[in-house]
Lab assay of single mutants.
Amino acid sequence: DYYKILGIPSGANEDEIKKAYRKMALKYHPDKNKEPNAEEKFKEIAEAYDVLSDPKKRGLYD
């Protein structure tokens, strides 16, 4: 669930989505986080943001 990945409610607005994305992206960026699964988690976060930040894609997802 993209909302769960970003840690936001399904009714989140654009600003909340952007803030959550930035926070999670910094936390899991492969250059900052050396955990083995950090890169995979970072890709999931980027995919979630891509879908939820685009009103058309978000509409299809919801």
Rank of each mutant, 00 (worst) to 15 (best):
A38W: 12
H29R: 12
D31N: 13
I17K: 01
P55M: 06
K57Q: 12
L26R: 09
G7P: 00
E14R: 05
A46G: 04
I45L: 09
G11V: 06
P9M: 08
Y61T: 10
R22C: 13
G59Q: 08
L60V: 11
I8G: 00
K18F: 06
A48G: 02
M24V: 11
A25R: 10
K34E: 15
F42E: 06
P30V: 13
D15R: 03
S10E: 10
M24R: 07
D31A: 14
I17V: 11
K41V: 09
K23Y: 08
D62H: 05
K34I: 02
K56G: 10
Y28L: 14
G7N: 07
I17C: 01
G7E: 07
K34V: 11
Y21S: 02
D1E: 11
K56Q: 08
F42P: 04
Y21Q: 03
E40T: 11
K56T: 10
D15G: 05
K56V: 05
K27V: 10
A12C: 07
Y21E: 02
Y28Q: 05
S10Q: 13
E44D: 10
P9R: 05
G59M: 06
I17G: 01
E16L: 07
Y28T: 02
G59A: 10
A12L: 02
F42S: 10
A25W: 12
Y61M: 14
M24C: 07
L6H: 00
Y2T: 03
A25K: 14
V51W: 02
Y61P: 14
Y21P: 02
L26E: 08
S10H: 06
V51E: 05
P36I: 13
E47Q: 05
L52A: 02
G59P: 08
D54E: 00
P36Q: 14
Y61L: 08
R22K: 13
G11K: 06
A48E: 00
P36E: 13
K32T: 03
D15I: 04
K57R: 06
R22W: 13
D1R: 01
N37D: 06
K19N: 14
F42L: 11
S53G: 08
I45P: 00
K18R: 09
S53C: 14
Y21N: 03
I17Q: 01
M24W: 12
